[in-house]
Design a protein around this nucleic acid. Sequence first.
DNA 1: CAAGATGCTGAGCAAGCGCTTAGTCACCCC
DNA 2: GGGGTGACTAAGCGCTTGCTCAGCATCTTG
Lengths: 205, 205
Amino acid sequence: MNELATAGLWPGEATEAPRRLLLAAVESFARRGYHATTTRDIATAAGMSPAALYIHYPSKAALLAEISRTGHQATFDLVERAEAASGDPVEQMRRLVEDFTVWHARGHTVGRIVNNELHALPEETFAAVAELRIRIEETVRRIIGRGVAAGVFEVPDQRTAARAVTSLGIDVSRWYTERSTESPEELGRRYAVLVLRMLGAGAAV
Amino acid sequence: MNELATAGLWPGEATEAPRRLLLAAVESFARRGYHATTTRDIATAAGMSPAALYIHYPSKAALLAEISRTGHQATFDLVERAEAASGDPVEQMRRLVEDFTVWHARGHTVGRIVNNELHALPEETFAAVAELRIRIEETVRRIIGRGVAAGVFEVPDQRTAARAVTSLGIDVSRWYTERSTESPEELGRRYAVLVLRMLGAGAAV
DNA sequence: CAAGATGCTGAGCAAGCGCTTAGTCACCCC
DNA sequence: GGGGTGACTAAGCGCTTGCTCAGCATCTTG
C-alpha cells in the first residue's frame, strides 16, 4: 500500500476493498505476468471470493489498465517536474535521472507492469499510455537538446542518447529488488553521475 | 530463420519441421508473451495441426526452454569473445557493447523472450540460465575493474556501472524494431561511445 | 512387395479460465 | 422494525487450454 502510494497510485481516498484488490493485482501481475495471473489469484490474495472482484472492477483487464494508466501518469508528472525545477539542463537532467531511477527502484513491481504488460492493455488505454511514453522521451530529448545548445552536453545523436537515458531508468524495474544492497536514492545518485558523464557533462559532476 | 541463426540458435543441422516450430514459437512468444501464446498459435504458424508439435517437442515449456537456453548461451559466448579479443579494457568494452547491442537489436524477438520470460522457465533451465546471466555481468564487471586498475576507467561503483552497461544493452530488445532508423551496427557504435564516456574513458573515444 | 518406421491429422479429454447468477448477510434510514 | 441497499459468497456456465490418441498416408528397408 505504501509502495502504491509511492508509485503514484491512490492519489486520494478510496475504500478498502478496491485498494486491496489493486494491491493484490500489482503483486500478482508483477510476479507472474498478466496472463499467468488468474482472477482467483487476485481475489484470494485480497481475501475475497472471485466474484467479489467484479463488484469493484468490470474485468481483469480493467485492473491492469488502472495500474498502467496511473503508473504512467505518475512517471510523466515526475519527468515534467524535473524539467520545471530548474533552468539549467545539467540540473534538470540530474533531477530527472535521480527521480526516475528512484521511482523505478522503489516501485519496481508497478514498474514491471508498466513496462512489460503494454501488449495486454485494452486498445484505448494503450493509446493513452503510448502517448505519455512518447512525451516522456520527448522531454528527455528536449533537455539534452538544450544542453547541447548551451554547450554543456555533447552526444553523437540526441534521440539515441534520450533512448539510452530512459532505457537505463526503465530497466531498473526489471532487476531491482528489496534485497539490493543499494538504496533507491543511492542508485539514483550514481545513475545521475553516469548519465551526466555519458552526455559529455562529466566536468560538471 | 535468418534471425534465428543470427541469434545463435540452430548451430548446425536440424530437420525442417522442428525448425519451423521453433521459429513460430519465437515469433509468438516475443509478440504476445509466453502465457498468451497457445500451442495452436504455434502449430498453425508452422503450418501444422496442434498435435504435430508434440512429435518434435515434449511440451510448450520445452520450446521456451530451448529458445532461452540457446539464446543465453549465444549471448554469453559473445561476451566471452569480446573479453578474449584484446588485452586493453577500453577495446574489450567497446567490442562488448557493440556486439551485445547488435545482438539485442538484430535479435530483438529472441532477446525479448530471453529477458522477459525467465519466470516461465522450468526450474532447472532457469538455474542454468541464471548462472549464465551472472557470468555475463561478472565479465562486464571484471573488464571495468581492470580498466579502473589501469587508470583508464573511473566509476562511482563497479557493480552499479556493470549493471548499467548490461542494462542498456538488454533493454534494446524491448524497444528496437525493424522500423528503427538506426541499423543495429550504427546503434552499437553509438552505444559504445556513450558507455565508454560513462565509464570515464571519454578521452579515448 | 510386405513390413515397419516416420510425420502428421481429426477428434476430443480433463482441467482451468474469465465471468455470471442467485442468494445471504449486515447495515442504514424512516 | 420493516424495507431498501451494498458487499459479499457458493455454485457453476461456456469456453479455451495443454496435451493425447487412434488412425492414415508416405517413405525406407529387406
